[in-house]
Every structure is written in structure tokens, then in C-alpha cells.
Simulated assay, not measured.
Amino acid sequence: MTDTAYVARRASRSEFLPIRGLKYHLRHWGDPKTVSPERPPLVMMHGWMDVGASFQFVVDALSDDRYIVAADWRGFGLTETPNEDSYWFADYLGDLDGIVDAVLKPFPGLEQIDLVGHSMGGNVVMLYGGVRPARIRRLVNLEGFGMPATVPKMAPKRYAAWLDELKQPVEIRPYASQAAVAARLQKTNPLLRSDRAHWLAGHWSKQDENGLWQILGDPAHKRSNPLLYQRDEVVACWAQISAPLLWVEGDQTDAGKWWNGRYTKDEFHERLKVVPSPVTKAVLSPAGHMLHHDQPEALARHLEAFLAG
């Protein structure tokens, strides 16, 4: 392993657009002139505490230099942070609709995109695939498992916990150097190569006026959501998906551990059966939840085969 930074094969360019009152950051790769109904823009949406640049390794591994757009969600990366106490799936969904509008605007007559989401982004793109099915040609979910089912009697305790959290400041600890940020990334994900960790650290954080490296994520993301996750509503949206779906997971991901056994991979795959369109499944190895960092080449091969199918 080397401590030198990863060298990107495909250069990206940044664009800032107004979307739902926020200055949104979109990262572009490739030539828009290559877009066609058979090769529409490929839109990639990152997960919680991540950034759009996180897809660079997969983009570099793709043999097809197609036009790709990756956005930083609100309150992450270079996208503006809203003046809010908490974050909601409905806002992410609204932002994604605005992003799709912006991506399709330069292509009159083009009505569909290919859409990829990882983790939290995977949950959002699954909802969007059912709410706006006509806008998606191909849909890809990278470990967006959803969450455990809830029951109404959980609401009082959840609201009370949220009210208590609002009275306490939230913060994300800074780091003394970019190398320290890279070390933190590797501590979370031991499969992350050193060169990739150092490259990611430069996009995942920014040096402040005191010389400390601040993570590019709003600390308010750490607050719990007072609204209960409605499994039946989510599954009802999934049941309206019309685009072919590719599901990809890592062999080392233990979703059951995240939720103390309240929700497992098996339950997710049972829910997935409601999707009426063809579903292709793939498992990457060795890979954990950050599979686009762990196995970008293998993921790229699955994406190419699926998107060309």
C-alpha cells in the first residue's frame, strides 16, 4: 500500500445550481454529447456522511466513458446546508426530483435517466423509482436496505428523544491533518486502500482558518428523525417501480448487527419481492457496506452489464 493520493483517470467538473432554495453541488464526468435514449445520463447519489466524489473510483473503472452526474446531498460536501434542525426523506426526494429536472434540461425530448444510489441514497432512489417510475430507465440500489418496521406506540418516545436532542449541541470532531482524516476513513473501513483513503479525505473534509480539517457534513445529520419509518408506505412505493433493478451488496455487510437483530438481510430480500420489474442481484467479495470503495472494478463490471442489458 502507498500513502500517496489516488490519481483519478477521469477528470470531473463542478457545477452549482439552485435546487429547492439551496445551492446544490453537482459533479460531472464525460461529454454530454454522448447522451442518447439508450445511453442517458447516469446519476449517482451518495449515502449518509459521504459525498458525490465518493463515486470517482467506480467512474474510473468503467470502460464506457459515458456522461455521469453525482450530486452532494443537502448538508453534505459542497452543497449548501439548510437552516433546519433535522433531515427528512421527503426533502431528499424533493431534491432528487429537482436534480433530475436539471440533468435532463439540456436534452430536449429525453425523458429518462439511469439512477444509482448507495446506502441512504439507495433508499431515496428506490422511493423515487416508485414515485416517478417513468423517469428511470435503469435503477441501481447499492446496499440501501431501508430500516426496521415501526409501530405507532413508538411515536411518543421517539418525539420525546428528538425534543431532548434539540436542546443539546451537535458537532462532528475536526482532525489535525488530511492524513488523520484518511486514517479515520480506514478505521471505519479496513478494506479501504490507503491511496483511495487519502484521495477521499481531500473531498470528504476541508481545512478551516485554524488549520483543522472539518468533515463536510452538517452535524444536524446526527440527530434522530422524529418521524417513524413507515415500512408499508415504502414498500407501496417499491411496488410501483417499473425500471429493471440491480441490487448489489457486500459479502461482509451485517445489516442485522446495525439494528440489533430487528431487521436483517433476509427481511430486506423478502420486501424486495414486491418490485414488479426484473431484479438482478449481485454480491461483491471481499466488500463491506462501502462496496464502491472496496471493489470499484467489480462493481463497474456489474453496472456495465446491467446498463447495457
Rank of each mutant, 00 (worst) to 15 (best):
S14K: 13
L17P: 06
R20W: 04
G21K: 12
G21E: 05
Y24D: 00
H25D: 04
L26E: 00
D31R: 10
S36Y: 11
R39D: 09
R39C: 12
G47T: 01
I68N: 01
V69N: 07
A70K: 06
W73S: 05
R74V: 07
G77R: 01
Y87K: 03
W88D: 13
L93D: 04
V103A: 01
L104K: 07
F107C: 09
L110S: 07
L110E: 12
L115H: 06
V116C: 00
V124P: 04
V125P: 07
L127D: 04
V131Y: 06
R137F: 08
L142W: 07
F145M: 15
P148V: 04
P152K: 15
D164H: 07
Y175Q: 01
A180V: 03
R196L: 13
A197C: 11
W199S: 05
W199D: 08
Q207Y: 01
E209A: 10
E209P: 01
W213A: 00
Q214L: 04
R223H: 07
Q230I: 00
V234T: 15
Q240M: 14
I241P: 00
D266I: 05
D266R: 14
E270V: 11
P276V: 12
H289Q: 12
H292T: 08
P296D: 05
P296H: 08
L299A: 06
G309P: 13
